[in-house]
């Protein structure tokens, strides 16, 4: 990882660079150790809170090819990283591929923030969409210094240089899969996530992921157990889920209990009839 730029300034002195291309954006980000900004709904509150702003910001342009919009590809559904959360929610392809999202989206941020905030920003902040994206086995298309590159989101989360620029994510063709997603917030709307839990029944196997106070993660150990032993033994499942969550960084035992129950409920939902 490159060292984070320690130089900070006030809001009024921030310089916003407007690169002409994604490659140029990556170049600026590296050279000035500057963060990218798209909707800015996550960056601004944290800078306001600390009263410290980066000296430079690299503005991303939704008009760059592939950065905004939703389309079907042969690999599944491709979603531009600069697509706003509201555009995602309203798009007909979302209803086709990801019906559970319509139930979740009203509980992701507030309506005003959803008009500004982007899919990429939500994923990078470990927001509500990250659990769903991880459980679906989403892949990311990333612009780097040398070119662009495609890899699983889960792997990218583990080792992500700050200058990596997310162009789009590709969700596999999940039509016909069982998908469930559930959020626990502090209140009914406009709450940071305490725990968002996604369960996907992808044909033969079950895929599980969480995000929230313990951070985003795919529950690989639990998935393996389910693959090997089926999902009938829920008491065993509880032990495995609990220990895997703790390993991932979920240290509040009470919250783990809630996540476990949400997972169990989600599993029942997605495997019903399977």
């Amino acid at each position: 990882m490159e060292p984070v730029n320690n130089e900070v300034t006030e809001r009024q002195a921030v310089r916003v660079m407007r690169p002409e291309s994604p490659r140029q954006a990556v170049s600026f980000a590296k050279r000035f150790r500057a963060p990218y900004i798209a909707g800015g709904t996550w960056l601004q509150p944290s800078c306001e809170r600390d009263r410290q702003w980066p000296v430079h910001l690299v503005a991303l342009n939704p008009d760059w090819p592939g950065f905004r919009g939703i389309q079907e590809t042969e690999d599944g559904l491709s979603i531009g990283a600069l697509t706003t959360l509201d555009e995602l929610a309203r798009h007909p392809l979302t209803a086709l591929y990801l019906p559970p999202l319509s139930g979740l989206i009203n509980r992701v941020a507030g309506p005003g923030v959803r008009h500004l905030g982007t899919v990429g920003g939500n994923l990078l902040a470990g927001g509500d969409l990250s659990a769903l994206a991880l459980a679906l086995g989403t892949e990311v298309d990333v612009v780097e210094g040398k070119g662009s590159n495609r890899r699983p989101l889960a792997r990218w989360f583990q080792d992500r240089p700050a200058s990596d620029l997310l162009r789009s994510v590709t969700v596999p063709d999940c039509r016909g899969w069982g998908v469930s997603v559930e959020k626990l917030g502090y209140r009914e709307r406009f709450s940071p996530t305490r725990a968002t839990v996604a369960c996907v029944h992808a044909g033969l196997q079950v895929q599980l992921a969480v995000c929230g106070e313990g951070g985003p993660g795919r529950l690989m150990v639990t998935e393996a157990m389910l693959r090997d032993e089926g999902i009938r033994e829920l008491t065993d499942l509880a032990i495995v889920v609990d220990s895997e969550l703790e390993t991932l960084g979920w240290h509040d035992t009470r919250l783990r209990l809630a996540v476990r129950r949400m997972l169990e409920s989600g599993l029942m939902e997605v495997t019903r009839g399977a």
């Binding site: 509150p45 502090y186 209140r187 009914e188 709307r189 406009f190």
Partner: peptide, 27 residues
Amino acid sequence: LTEDMTTRDGSYLADNLDQYLIPTFHD
């Protein structure tokens, strides 16, 4: 149900309405 300005060593742990959560219309 949700409101408490908790402190640690005399410091508040919340400092704005994204952390101190009052009821919304839907609550």
